[in-house]
């Protein structure tokens, strides 16, 4: 969607030099470039039980004096390469896969970035730098643990994001929508026409939602879908922010038009 975005920023708002990075964020991350996660996400991951390895890169004493719950300690400020080697070995020993979500933090984002780059070069390809490190975490007022840190990394928990619904679950609901459930298709009219829609679904393009919120029931289960999950996730966020019950709203993490069950029917 950036193509439209760049055009509007240039022509409507008058910025002289507007560029579009076509390759997108996934390719950026895959090509060993630094990638930052926010404290808000890590906090959500803790509360939701999202599987991740959290690595504190500060000296043991400083980490013990205040760290983020669940972190393992691999001090990297004095010998970064040795620390990366030690973590690499510990992850291998724990049987953790190379695509596991790993979040690094410390007191100096430059050290964290160098560490991230070293790990990435060693094929740990789903690493994140906690933006702003320990200071940013504290600034948010999030809880800080004290005492010795765990030495062995563990990778436990769910890999499903909050509110997400798998395609297999959605297929069942799309074929037999229960009376207490409303499906919202947040794609554009052109997409509805091209691929068809789930019969009975409420059709609200994402850019129209703000004006049509009163059509979205509050007392029913809501399932939002789009073409791949991005817009559905954004609509999920909009509804939660506007007071819909988080227990009743789900977003579909998948591509309904690719379903082998043919859940979309011609309009």
């Amino acid at each position: 969607m950036s193509p439209h975005f760049t055009r509007v920023v240039k022509e409507v708002y008058g910025y002289e030099d507007v560029r579009y990075m076509v390759a997108g964020h996934k390719t950026w991350q895959a090509t060993i470039n630094p990638y930052y996660t926010e404290p808000e996400f890590l906090r959500m991951a803790q509360q939701h039980g999202l599987a991740h390895v959290l690595v504190d890169l500060r000296p043991a004493a400083r980490a013990a004096a205040g760290h983020i719950a669940g972190a393992v300690n691999f001090p990297a400020e004095t010998d970064l390469v040795a620390a990366a080697k030690a973590l690499d070995a510990a992850l291998e020993e724990a049987g953790i896969k190379k695509n596991a979500r790993i979040i690094y933090y410390g007191d100096d984002d430059r050290v964290t970035r160098a560490f991230h780059d070293t790990m990435h070069a060693n094929s740990w390809n789903n690493g994140y730098i906690l933006n702003g490190g320990m200071a940013a975490w504290r600034a948010k007022g999030y809880p800080v643990d004290h005492g010795p840190l765990a030495a062995k990394p563990v990778y436990e928990g769910t890999t499903v994001l909050p509110g997400a619904m798998s395609m297999s679950e959605f297929e069942k609901i799309a074929l037999h929508t229960p009376p207490d459930t409303v499906i919202i298709d947040t794609r554009s009219p052109a997409e509805w026409k091209k691929t068809g829609v789930v019969p009975g679904a409420l059709l609200i393009p994402i850019d129209t939602l703000a004006r049509r919120l009163d059509e979205v029931p509050r007392d029913k289960n809501i399932v939002v879908h789009c073409a791949a999950g991005n817009r559905a996730l954004q609509v999920w966020r909009m509804l939660i922010d506007r007071g819909w019950d988080p227990a009743k709203v789900r977003w579909v993490d998948g591509k309904p038009h690719k379903s082998k069950k043919h859940i979309l029917k011609k309009m």
Binding site: M1, S2, Y13, Y15, E16, Y20, V22, H25, A228
Partner: peptide, 13 residues
């Protein structure tokens, strides 16, 4: 308005 703006999203898939 002379600031260079670089936008990205998911990328073409």
């Amino acid at each position: 308005k002379r600031t260079k703006i670089i936008a990205y999203c998911r990328g073409f898939t």
